[in-house]
Amino acid sequence: MDQLEIREGARRQHRGLAMFCVLYCWHHNKKAVFVRKELLLHYLGLERMKGTRYEWITEDVAAYFPYIFKRTTNNKELIVFSKIPENELLENKNEAIRFSPKILGLSSYSLISLDEHGEKAYKLIDDSMPFLAEIKNLHEFAITNALSLLSSGIISPNKALESDA
């Protein structure tokens, strides 16, 4: 795979996540969403994020969230996607929400544990939805699938954008 294909794939991932985050903020009446780095890396299918990837994310989601910055809270690294500058957000912290949606009826962290606990989870998935067994990144699949179902009117935002918090 050449660099151009990698970049285009990353752009689609970033924009899909940004669109979901925009809808998530809209649904919860917030101006910013913070995503735990662990969850972001899992969604992107990465073990670590280099500066170049962070620059790509910033560039790709700028139309959705003009302010992107890193924060550390309770020893957890966060990436914040915001429609307002960092100083305004710090003055009014209730304008942000933690990114923790239920996707496919599972919390964000349940999807991570599906990958970590392998056998039982994949047996359950294979028995109920065999086509999902080929999918390597359940977060990306779930978010893009939810966006598709939302845009076609098959599901409503009430369930698709619900928080597990």
Rank of each mutant, 00 (worst) to 15 (best):
L90C: 06
F34Q: 13
E59T: 14
S152R: 07
I154Q: 08
M49S: 08
K83R: 15
E55F: 06
L147N: 00
E59D: 06
L150M: 12
G9I: 00
M49Y: 07
F99R: 03
I125M: 00
G105W: 04
Y122A: 03
L104D: 08
R71T: 06
T72R: 09
R53F: 08
S151F: 13
R12T: 10
I155Y: 07
I6Q: 13
D126F: 11
L147R: 04
K102L: 15
M129N: 10
L40R: 02
E47K: 10
A62F: 12
I125H: 08
L114I: 14
V22S: 14
L41A: 02
A133L: 13
Y24C: 05
K93V: 15
K70H: 07
R36D: 06
D164W: 13
L17P: 00
A165V: 15
L149R: 12
K31F: 04
L104N: 03
L90V: 05
K30D: 01
G45L: 05
E116R: 12
A121L: 11
M129Y: 08
T144R: 06
E91R: 15
M1Q: 04
D127C: 08
L90Q: 12
L124P: 02
G9L: 04
L90M: 06
I103W: 08
A18G: 02
G118E: 14
Y54I: 11
E47T: 13
M19W: 08
F99N: 04
V61A: 00
N92K: 13
R53H: 09
S107R: 13
A10W: 04
H42T: 08
K136E: 12
P130T: 02
I155Q: 10
N137M: 00
R71H: 06
E86P: 01
R98M: 13
S148A: 14
L46E: 10
L150Q: 02
R15H: 03
K102C: 06
Y122N: 10
T144D: 02
A96S: 14
L44C: 01
R15D: 05
A96K: 07
K136S: 09
A96E: 15
K76Q: 14
E59K: 10
H14N: 08
N75H: 12
Y64E: 03
E59N: 11
A63Y: 04
K70I: 05
F131W: 01
T72M: 02
C25R: 01
K37W: 05
I143L: 09
N137G: 05
I97S: 09
Y24F: 14
A10L: 13
R7G: 06
T58W: 05
Y67F: 15
L89G: 10
H117N: 15
A160C: 10
F20E: 04
L39Y: 08
Y64D: 15
K93P: 15
R53E: 11
R12H: 02
E88K: 09
R98Q: 14
I135T: 03
M129T: 12
S107L: 07
H14I: 00
K50M: 10
A10Y: 09
L23C: 13
I154E: 11
K31Y: 07
L89I: 05
V80M: 01
F99E: 04
L150G: 00
Y109F: 12
A63H: 03
N94D: 14
